[in-house]
Simulated assay, not measured.
Amino acid sequence: MIQKHRKNGNFYLFIGFLMMAILFYSSSQTYEQQSQIGFLSQLLKNEPFKELLSQISFSYAGSEVSIAKSGYFAFVEFFIRKGAHFGTYFILGSSFFLGLNPRIKQYALTAIFAWLSATGYAALDEFHQMLTGGRSPLFQDVALDAAGAFTGIVLCWLILGIKNKRII
């Protein structure tokens, strides 16, 4: 039964729409509701790799990201949050690609449509965050989301291309 749904793409489209619902719910929460700093402070009491991580400093969306600027736990949380951006859109882009491929039947066209859909949703998600109190929409997050979707799509394209012995 699942094999049939995988072949026609419905299973993957379900995963994609489920991911969209999760993202919508997540972007409707304030920063304080999502913050994991308290949990991280309990989990990482010894502040592992603090000395090494203290040497890292860079700018993201016009703000300095460093332990000196925001503290150890906020610094670690920053990477968890940005990893979540990349990972969720990796799943969304991959799901769209795998779900739409049986319908469109051309890898390049499927990839373009899947990437534009995931990137468009990322932009809408940042707009939704703008409407949520205590959140700030960032173009850099849309770019990160788009990169995650692109990576997932390219990986699926390569795997399917190798499996089916066709790349385009």
Rank of each mutant, 00 (worst) to 15 (best):
I2F: 06
K4Q: 12
K4W: 07
K4P: 01
G9A: 09
G9V: 05
G9N: 07
F11W: 11
F11P: 01
L13D: 09
I15C: 10
I15S: 07
L18V: 13
I22A: 15
I22S: 12
L23E: 10
L23H: 02
F24A: 14
S26W: 07
S27Q: 09
S28P: 00
Q29K: 15
Q29P: 01
Y31V: 08
Q33T: 09
S35G: 11
Q36S: 13
I37K: 12
S41T: 12
Q42L: 09
L43R: 06
L44P: 10
L44A: 12
K45G: 03
N46L: 11
P48W: 02
L52M: 13
L53V: 03
S54Q: 07
F58L: 09
Y60H: 13
Y60N: 13
E64G: 09
I67P: 11
A68V: 12
A68W: 05
A68K: 15
F73V: 02
F73G: 03
V76G: 06
E77H: 08
F78P: 11
F79I: 10
I80W: 06
I80Y: 07
G83E: 05
G83K: 11
H85L: 05
G87N: 05
L92V: 03
G93I: 03
F97S: 04
L98Y: 01
G99D: 01
L100S: 02
P102Q: 11
Y107F: 14
A108R: 15
L109P: 02
T110G: 00
A111K: 10
I112K: 06
I112D: 03
A114W: 06
A114Y: 06
L116M: 13
S117A: 15
A118L: 03
T119Y: 04
T119S: 13
G120W: 07
A123P: 01
A123E: 06
L124A: 12
L124P: 02
D125P: 03
H128A: 02
M130W: 08
L131Q: 14
G134P: 03
R135I: 00
S136K: 00
S136T: 05
L138M: 15
F139C: 06
D141I: 04
D145K: 04
D145R: 08
I153F: 12
I153W: 10
I159Y: 13
G161F: 05
G161P: 04
I162V: 13
I162C: 08
K163F: 09
K163A: 15
N164I: 02
R166L: 10
R166K: 15
I167N: 06
